[in-house]
Design a binder for these strands. Structure first.
Lengths: 180, 180
DNA sequence: GAAACCATGTAAGTTGTTACATGATTGG
DNA sequence: CCAATCATGTAACAACTTACATGGTTTC
């Protein structure tokens, strides 16, 4: 699913400027997709050319005009058409996982830090998402996906804590401890 | 982590040809990273130029020579150097998840099929991985990552089954059923 | 006064995929 | 006989990111 389609999707939730679409990417798709201005602005220009969105310029004080985009009927159709295509396979590009695959090549201390940080990061994300889940007004789809992200990160953190001994067991024994 | 680095990583596990590296990608990194010949062969050529790997050509009957690559000491250093860098953030590019975020735009039937397929796919993958986990000889790192993949896909399938009502609740009621 | 936010856009560069080019062997 | 496996490589293309270009406003 390319940036063009994702922009269209965000616009089904309401009108927005390019800047706001970038924020929406961070809010809704964070940890899934992300997009830079360098891909969003050209995509919006193309969508406008193609009649998938309309653009209204709102003059602002001492700032570039704010261009507010709104999805058209054709845009909505194109988006639904895209959604109906069988989704491609998931691809988790995780340098963390790639690193752990070669855990035996890493200094024990470095590995432990890596795992600690990751667990902390997961817990933090879960806490933040739970808060959003509780207060936010979300579409059922958004709620489902948010819950999915929570479940994934929660089980990720748990997995790491319960299984880190598999890779840390290789540690040089600490001077005064003699654990299994 | 680019293909070059990942090739180097695979070569820390033993010598291999470009063709075999592609297979290793499918075996070890499946669902994480994947790579095509169009990126593997140029990467190996570059690694050879840079002295990170050596290449031995083994003539074969009626086939192109098989080029077997072996990592050098410099290669090993470069790889470890790469592993020591703080890993970038995970990025799960999932068209499935992106689609579900807009579940309300999809026909109920289509949505149900999508969820069924996904659950089935997860369960299948988990079963296959459990088999590999049981019999394969794996490094601790590989075992850890395999377990991680199993945990993820298992909790993914469970999450979908336990929460699909959130997005399917919107279904037009089927003619003769009146389940909650 | 530095950083972050608001606001848009272009150009160059990176990184990868797909399709092309070649061609024997094995199994259903 | 068609598909998959074995085996390597190049060229064209796609999609995205980073850095550049511009510049006021708000917050620490």
């Amino acid at each position: 699913m390319d940036i063009r389609t994702l922009c269209l999707g965000i616009l089904t939730l309401g009108e927005a400027s390019g800047y706001e679409i970038k924020q929406a990417f961070e809010e809704h798709f964070s940890r899934f997709y992300e997009a830079s201005f360098g891909s969003i602005y050209p995509a919006l220009a193309k969508l406008t050319d193609d009649g998938m969105v309309t653009c209204t310029e709102q003059p602002q004080d001492r700032r570039p005009d704010k261009k507010v985009y709104r999805i058209t009927a054709s845009g909505r159709l194109e988006f639904i058409d895209e959604l109906m295509k069988p989704p491609g396979r998931d691809r988790l590009r995780s340098e963390f996982i790639a690193t752990l695959m070669f855990a035996d090549l890493l200094p024990t201390r470095h590995l432990a830090d890596l795992l600690d940080e990751r667990v902390h990061d997961c817990r933090e994300a879960v806490a933040e998402w739970r808060a959003r889940e509780a207060k936010g007004r979300l579409t059922p789809g958004q709620r489902f996906v948010l819950g999915y992200a929570i479940a994934m990160h929660d089980s990720m953190a748990r997995y790491i804590e319960e299984n880190r001994h598999l890779i840390e067991g290789h540690a040089l024994l600490a001077p005064s401890s003699s654990g299994a």
